[in-house]
Every structure is written in C-alpha cells, then in structure tokens.
C-alpha cells in the first residue's frame, strides 16, 4: 500500500484515458496555446507548457487536449501522446482539487516519508495514484523534490510543505478539506492544482510576492555566518579602477 510494491503487469499503460472524452477546452484555450507557441523560436517547444495548460482546463491530459496540441503544433497525436505519457506531472485521470505529494525517495523515506505516505493514504482513503471519491484530493508518492534539508517533505499543488509529520499532515488535510486558507511553509496561499498548472503553463497568478524569501533550513548557514561575522572576502578595489 505504500506505493512501493513491485508492479509487473501494465494493462492500461501506453495511453491517456480514452474512455473519458469530456473536455472544457474551447477556442480560447487554443488561442492561449498559440500564445505559448509564439514564445519560442520553434513552436513545438511550447508542448510541455501547453500540456500544463490542458491540465489546468481539463484537470488531466484529456484526449481533446492531446488533439488540440497536435493541431496547434502540426504534429501527430501519437507524438503528443509520447510526450504526455513520459512526464510524471501529466495525469491520465482527473487529479483532485488538491494534489498531495509525499516524498518517498531514499532520504525522505528514511526520515519518515514512508510512514507519512502510509498515514496520508489511510487518512484520505486512497492509494498513491488515486483521487478521493469527492474529487477533493489526489495522492502521489513523489520523487525527490529538492527540499531534502526540510525532510520529510510534502507537496500540495507543488507548493512546499516542509518538515512534515503525521499530525501536521492531518491538520493540513483537514484545513484543505474544509476550504480553510492554507499557506505553504515557503510559498503562497494554496489555491488549487488546476490553478497551479496554469501558472506552470506560463500564465502568472499574481501570487509571486506572497511568502518569505527563504525560511528555515535555507537560512541555516547564513544565520551562523551573520552570528559569527563570517563573510566572503571584500572585492579588491583595483578592479573597478582598471575598468
């Protein structure tokens, strides 16, 4: 149940969910896709952002989303599908309003990540890779999220929730379940996974100024240096005169 059982049979691999053809992609979405394509010297570079945009609209990589990307870029749907199924952030089935990631790569796992994932899985009643029946949460065992100094780490909609433990996770999930305002430990107010995907696609949400510059472990060395008066050498004055 920890998401680390060895799987060997892959009956549904190789494609997005073709059974669910629902979509909210409109002409406006296509216009935004073209905006993304125009940001690059070659349009296909925009494919990853475009797929993020698809997720922000459809809550997953939908068949229509794949087709729309193929149309806008003039490539085959098979080529888009090859990309959409390569990257783990692209979801084949609807993700929850909030997408919960628990890091279980070695260091986080050892520091409690394995236990935390099991706890969150029990609390939500879903296995990693699943979404709760009410669509509120989806759960994923994520790989190292570059916050090892804050282990064990949890992510909510790709915002850091540092130094987690089961009790903090319970509070967090409860707040999210009840739509109370939640802040990332080093980021912004938690919005939703779909809104996050829109930012990743390249359409800012105006929340860049929320949260601290840095917190906790990020400042550990700086704090000691300040305390002890350590600093990098002064720049030699001669250089400025030479220029």
């Amino acid at each position: 149940m920890s998401g680390h059982e060895f799987q060997s049979f892959f009956p549904e691999s190789g494609t997005v969910d073709m059974a669910d053809t629902s979509t909210h992609i409109t002409e406006a979405t296509l216009v935004e896709m073209r905006v993304l394509a125009d940001r690059y010297p070659q349009a296909r570079s925009a494919l990853l952002p475009m797929l993020h945009l698809v997720q922000s609209v459809d809550g997953r990589v939908s068949p229509r989303g794949i087709e729309a990307c193929a149309e806008v870029l003039g490539i085959t749907a098979a080529q888009v599908s090859g990309v959409a199924t390569f990257y783990t952030m692209y979801k084949r089935r609807p993700a929850g309003e909030h997408h919960i990631g628990v890091c279980t790569t070695a260091l986080c796992a050892v520091m409690g990540g394995d236990a935390l994932l099991e706890h969150v899985s029990d609390s939500l009643g879903v296995h990693p890779g699943e979404t709760t029946a009410d669509g509120k949460f989806s759960l994923e065992a994520v790989e190292c999220n570059a916050a090892c100094d804050f282990a064990p780490v949890m992510m909510v909609n790709w915002e850091f929730m540092d130094n987690m433990d089961p009790d903090k996770a319970d509070l967090l999930l409860d707040d999210l379940a009840h739509d109370r305002e939640v802040h990332s430990t080093r980021g912004a107010t938690i919005t939703s996974w779909k809104e996050a995907e829109r930012v990743l696609a390249g359409f800012p949400d105006g929340r860049a100024d929320e949260g601290p510059a840095a917190a906790g472990a990020s400042l550990a060395g700086l704090a000691i240096a300040r305390e002890r008066g350590w600093r990098a050498p002064e720049a030699p004055v001669r250089l400025k005169e030479e220029q």
């Binding site: 691999s13 190789g14 068949p63 749907a77 098979a78 888009v80 599908s81 199924t85």
Partner: peptide, 16 residues
C-alpha cells in the same frame, strides 16, 4: 511513437 518511460516505455499510437 515511443510512449511512457523507463521500464514501461513502449511503442504506441494515439487511440484514434
């Protein structure tokens, strides 16, 4: 096209 990744990588097509 090649789809999926790692040990799951496979030759695939788009459904339709």
């Amino acid at each position: 096209a090649l789809v999926e990744r790692g040990a799951l990588q496979q030759v695939g097509l788009y459904a339709d």
